[in-house]
Amino acid sequence: MKKKHNALLSGPYLVWTAAFIVIPLILIVYYGFTDENHHLTLSNIAKITDPVTLKALFLSLLLSAMATVICLILAYPLAMILARMKNGASAIITTVFIIPMWMNSLLRIFAWQTLLERNGVINQVLSFLHLPPQHLINTPAAIALGMIYDYLPFMLLPLYNALTKLDWNVVNAAYDLGANRRQTFFKVIIPLTMPGIVSGITMVFVPALTTFVISDFLGGSKVLLIGNIIDQQFTQVGNWNAGSGLSLVLMIFILISMAVMQHYESDDEGVSSIL
């Protein structure tokens, strides 16, 4: 009786899963492994070896890894400070850091574009100070900056969560047993907040690796990421097969990085639930 009830409740979710997750995935796999004439082929997958595409993939991996590491380094001390604060104050400051998440992502990136442009705010200030203008926009660095700015809250939240759950007596126990601050941080605090670190890395690395909006706005057409190449295949070239094939390759890279992360993950929260 109860089982029937449960099956009835889960019905809509099953329909959803099938219609919007399983079927699209099957379609991508289908397109990825066939050509326009519906013949089986590996040529779409092989497109990854094209020099431009390969370069975009490596640049994507490099920039998203860089952005992830910098986000982690920036967010961890902040999360520690917030977690150790009194409830009211930390809630306010956390909200301040999260507010950008509530704004449209395009808007945030567009704001950076106007800052970094050739005649943008930064260069205007520089010329006002009689300093030479800098080439800021359309560089890999600009894209990394956009990624860090855009995804920092996604790193901060899981870290903050993990650190508020940390029993401070465990940290005191480490001091008590003779560990100094550095040893306590690396031997106790970091390992115990690993689930938060892994979640944060996942939340930043995956969207950064697949983004095409940030590189569009801050990279112009000069710096291409793998996301832009896939985007072009669908919207400009109109080659759905090639786009699907490259998407599959990108998925493989994400799966590999997730598997590596899961190796460091001890708890069942976070990545294992994503995989």
Binding site: D167, N169, V170, N172, A173, A174, V188, P191, L192, M194, S266
Partner: peptide
């Protein structure tokens, strides 16, 4: 009080 063992 609550043992404070290193659970990792």
């Amino acid at each position: 009080q609550k043992y404070a063992l290193f659970t990792h």
